[in-house]
Design a protein around this nucleic acid. Sequence first.
DNA 1: ATCCCGAGGG
DNA 2: CCCTCTGGAT
Length: 218
Amino acid sequence: MNRELVRLYPDARCELDFTTPLELLVATILSAQCTDKRVNAVTPELFRRYRTAADYAGAEREELESLIRSTGFFRSKANSIIGLGQALCERHGGEVPSNLDDLVRLPGVGRKTANVVLGNAFDVPGITVDTHFGRLARRFGWTEATDPVKVEDEVAGLFPAKDWTMLSHRMIWHGRRICHARRPACGVCALAHWCPAYGAGPTGEDEARTLVRNGPFS
DNA sequence: ATCCCGAGGG
DNA sequence: CCCTCTGGAT
């Protein structure tokens, strides 16, 4: 199955623009409920003004908010980013830590964000279970769990660690483009012939029930 | 109107 | 577990 996804999306990758772990961390925080394209529209100016963790720690709130405003949730994101800068300076000498435990303790950094940074800035294999990954993993029959950590653990047992990061990208691409939450485009899905959720009865999951109710096409 | 690659807080 | 934070695309 991974083979099918590789064939489908050979060049899947992180679509956020960044050059350093700190930039990726900030971009990923900004990407919540926001397209990567919009994040990439604000980060050039943002990264020009704020280059180090100390820069974020000492940021003037109003200015930071205005720079990131169009990514949505700008007040809470600005809060997170300032707190992030402070925490990085206080606990990690201004550097971005490269392990999950330290990353997750940072303000505004949940497990999903932490895994994105590990996989894309540090080449540490990580399964990024966001809303897409979880939904597709359940439709594919890889897990029945809804808890992202359980999904992560169960899927980790199915694939070698070297594949985790790219698998995450491909799952997320497919989820965004084809295997939507509400009306999955099964009619144009190259995986439909293989997919347990295609044309199958209820699987006990909301999205699958919606699929069955609406029919696999359109 | 409704949805979207989350995280924190009550 | 549910709520909130927010803007932009469709």
